[in-house]
Amino acid sequence: MLIISAMIIGLGLGSMYGLLALGFYVTYAVSNTVNFAQGSTMMLGAVLCFTFWATLGWPLPAAIVAALLLCAAWGVAVERVAVRPFVRRGSDGWLMATVALGIVVDNAVLFTFGKDPRGMPPTFLVTESLAVGGVRVQLQQMLIPLVGLGLAFALTLFARRTRHGAAMLAVVQNGDAARLMGINVGAAVTAAFALSGFFAGVAGILIAPLFTVSSTMGTLFGIKAFAVAILGGIGSPWGVMIAGLLYGVLEATVTASFGSTYTQIVAFSLVILTLALRPEGLFGRAAVKKV
């Protein structure tokens, strides 16, 4: 029973890491850059949704849509302010710059939203639960993996079936050839960052009812999600999602067996070990060297 409940929790958290990591994936795939402060964007999603819904009293769907749109806009802003100027001059300063922007937004939220962690008002998703293998599982806990896998699936469909999705993938595979097809590479990168912000927002809104909403809630999630993205090889939506699930289940299993004090030590040691043995990640492919 301990194991079953650990699995359920692990899958829920894991798909949340996966969602955040999908955000790393889309930008890395299209532009070889990431928003290192992805955790802050996730926090923004939760905070905005809380503010619109609980504080301003908007209907929940409207609050969610508005929060997600703003997260996507924030993604675009990050790309314009902290990524593009550095990429243009061939510097990897974007890494530090996105971290700096994360610090700024975390603190800005601290002063506007308040220092107090807040709790999302419960919905039926939290109050209702089902019994699975003798363990009570809240609907919200099931919703997270469903949305996570669903979005990974949708992302795959978008890439495989739509004109614009194929165009974004083309940018990854061959930027020059993509431009020859009339694809605006700059716009594709912007879109990728918007999508990345959107995913982070979804993750934030999904985890908020199970967790607390505060300006610092995203930091550790962001780092773990980055570990997940790297472990997944930042190569494909499914690789990233599966790495997320594995990481979540691993965490939950360690917690269930040894207590959560060792969870981070074990998990992060495994990250180092995995990368030492497979530098390209679990599901990544080694790039071909050229002279």
Binding site: Y28, T261, I272
Partner: peptide
């Protein structure tokens, strides 16, 4: 490893030391 991968390894290292 390079770039973000290296950043991740070193972050993980510092985290493990602290914990």
């Amino acid at each position: 490893v390079r770039g973000p991968y290296l950043a991740m390894i070193t972050i993980a290292f510092a985290f493990v030391v602290e914990q």
